[in-house]
Write a protein that binds this DNA or RNA. Structure first.
Lengths: 230, 230
DNA sequence: ACCTGAACACCGTTCAAGT
DNA sequence: ACCTGAACACCGTTCAAGT
């Protein structure tokens, strides 16, 4: 038997690494929300004391930075080939899907100060895709800004809206205690737009996405020369 | 001298009320960020122990709900008269201005589960404005969704972007350690779109806002009858 | 080298006690 | 009625000590 790797616990407990720490943090966040991600609890997830984590991550802030990176790795980058509109639409849907699967995502990304390398690489891929699609630099900046604002905003507001997607909507107005004389438009919207037709909030996402893409396509067609000159 | 209001401290320290507690919380948030809003610190802001707050707010969660309400009170509601586009644009700019003045706003709103009465009243005003502008219910729902997603998303992403608005941008690429061979599009964007012209991120907000409003106006013009029928 | 126990300065909240 | 001190169960982080 070798003498260097003979610790008793090593067999049942694989080596602690930065990656395993981040993975554990993601698991805790998925289960208990961003609020539940504490050094002690992430340590517990790995069968280790909280203080052990400090040998692999600089601190909680660094761990959250790494967790934000973990999230962006999961977002599909737009393929630089093929029509830009399809590629960009696909990456926007992917971004939204990742945030839906990990509801703590928007709040985490929002709380981070500087963008990580994975996020920067992702943005680079988006810009490259737009560039090949014929977007001059200035218009690409606009496109990037409005697209990301829309997608992040959508996933952020989606959960705080009065109607919960997929939930029962019959007693919704009653649940919110929305008197029809004070909130007539709101009650009307809930009744007509949700009750009575199979309301899927995913359709809402697509509607806005197409609206934004239409706007960008129109401005792209207005003539790239003008954008470059001014 | 009256006997009911003779406490010594009462003169120097006005009555503690729920409103004053929320106001103090806002002051702490403005000064130290959302992270700094603790019961103990809000109490300290009022010259009172943390436990005293519990006589006026149910707990920290209730205090944060009230703080989110405090924020929405400051957002200008769209006037129901006049053209819808101007009214809606003004309220979007107001929403953004409030969030700029209180950078903890997006994270706070994002963290709240259910919308407060002030937010509901605000949404009602937006829907009423759109209704008078000729929006059928379904299109109003779309408009409301895409507009709020854009505005919230914009203020949320604005602070986590690589370029800090108003800051020095000359050494930006170096600061981010962005090698031009790995991030060519990014470096190009920073150089051409920011350095060399007076880049104001406020313009970016207007650009996207007009794009979204253009899209809504076009869909409104396509014929409201169709939206109602389907 | 990697892990840990004890310790420090913080949290939100409860509760019995003060006025 | 309103305020508070002590207490409880938590935090992130440091540091000296273990192996």
């Amino acid at each position: 038997m070798p003498s260097s790797t003979d610790s008793r616990a090593a067999a049942s407990r694989p080596q602690l690494t930065a990656d395993r720490v981040v993975e554990a943090a993601a698991a805790v966040a998925d289960r208990e929300g961003l609020h539940g991600v504490s050094m002690r609890r992430v340590g517990g997830e790995l069968g280790v004391e909280a203080m052990s984590l400090y040998h692999h991550v600089a601190g909680k802030d660094a761990l959250l930075d790494a967790l934000a990176d973990w999230l962006m790795v999961r977002v599909e980058r737009p393929s630089p080939d093929g029509p830009w509109r399809e590629a960009i639409a696909a990456r926007c849907r992917s971004l939204r899907a990742v945030m839906r699967d990990h509801p703590w995502g928007p709040a985490l990304v929002e709380s981070r100060r500087a963008p990580g390398m994975t996020l920067l690489g992702h943005l680079e891929a988006v810009l490259e895709c737009l560039h090949r699609g014929g977007f001059p630099v200035q218009l690409a900046a606009h496109a990037f800004s409005v697209l990301d604002a829309y997608v992040y905003g959508f996933v952020s507001t989606e959960r705080s809206l009065p109607f919960e997607p997929g939930g029962g909507v019959d007693d919704l107005a009653a649940e919110l205690a929305l008197p029809a004389d004070v909130f007539p438009r709101m009650v009307e919207l809930i009744e007509q737009a949700i009750v009575g037709r199979s309301y899927d909030y995913a359709d809402e996402f697509e509607y806005g996405l197409e609206l934004v893409l239409d706007g960008l396509e129109a401005r792209l067609g207005e003539g790239p020369a003008e954008s470059v000159a001014r």
